[in-house]
């Protein structure tokens, strides 16, 4: 997927997105009819108080949770219409997700963790997968650790490996769910710089964060409050 910025068509379109949970007899609305658009190549921070719906929004974009109403179109495809198996494949090829707690599979070496999405998506040849995974780990500065198990490296290193894993299938979109939330400031800086590099390389990055400093360094901030978009600043001029 090569997205020409000048084409000026949004990569992600969210229309009237609503998500509510049932808690006992009451219904809690996590998202209340949200609409927004994200263009290719953007670096977007999603911020807001706890419970404002940031993570829920991210889950809707990646299709890991089902919405109550509305539409999420990614590159023109309606996420909610895809059956589960297709959704999984689509996710594997088009999205890279980085979690707060890294979520590396503990029994697999970093190299295998990075190769896994390629195998799941059945992309590249066997030899290419290895080469590619090694290159990605080198890119995040882990060339010396590729045969180590996640438990043997530090949290910051695990998160860098998780970014390499997110890049495995060269997806156009990277989603981060507080990817620096569990890191000390030094490691957080390295991880943030990696995200910035990805944007420079043409990826679209949407990152949920609570770190105001980091958010301020990103071109666009979408602030959620009580399930609604409170502020949305820094959207591209052509929007």
């Amino acid at each position: 997927m090569n997205h020409d910025l000048s084409s000026r068509s949004p990569l992600i379109q969210v229309r009237d997105l609503t998500k509510s949970y049932h808690v006992g007899p009451t219904t809690v609305s996590a998202l209340r009819s949200i609409s927004l658009q994200i263009w290719p190549g953007e670096f977007v921070a999603v911020v807001g108080p706890s419970g404002s719906g940031k993570s829920t929004l991210l889950n809707m974009l990646s299709g890991v949770d089902r919405m109550t109403a509305g539409d999420v179109l990614v590159d023109g495809r309606a996420v909610q219409r895809m059956p589960e198996a297709e959704l999984a494949r689509w996710r594997g090829e088009n999205l890279g997700i980085v979690f707060q707690f890294f979520q590396m599979l503990p029994t697999m070496t970093l190299l295998n963790n990075v190769m896994l999405p390629m195998e799941l998506a059945n992309r590249y040849t066997r030899a290419e997968r290895r080469t590619r995974a090694a290159q990605l780990l080198t890119r995040v500065g882990l060339e010396d650790q590729i045969h180590k198990l996640p438990g043997r490296v530090s949290g910051g290193q695990q998160q860098r490996a998780a970014i390499a894993r997110a890049l495995a299938n060269d997806p156009p979109i990277i989603l981060g769910d507080e990817p620096t939330g569990n890191l000390d400031s030094g490691s957080a800086q390295i991880v943030f710089d990696l995200f910035a590099e990805l944007v420079a390389a043409g990826k679209t990055v949407v990152m949920v964060t609570q770190d105001e400093e980091l958010a301020a360094r990103m071109p666009r901030q979408i602030e959620l409050s009580e399930g609604r978009v409170a502020h949305d600043q820094g959207a591209p001029a052509y929007a």
Binding site: V64, R89, R91, G92, I97, L105, L116, L120, A121, N169
Partner: peptide
């Protein structure tokens, strides 16, 4: 959950 998030089908 992690496996599915990184593209594993059911």
């Amino acid at each position: 959950g992690v496996l599915r998030a990184i593209g594993a089908t059911p």
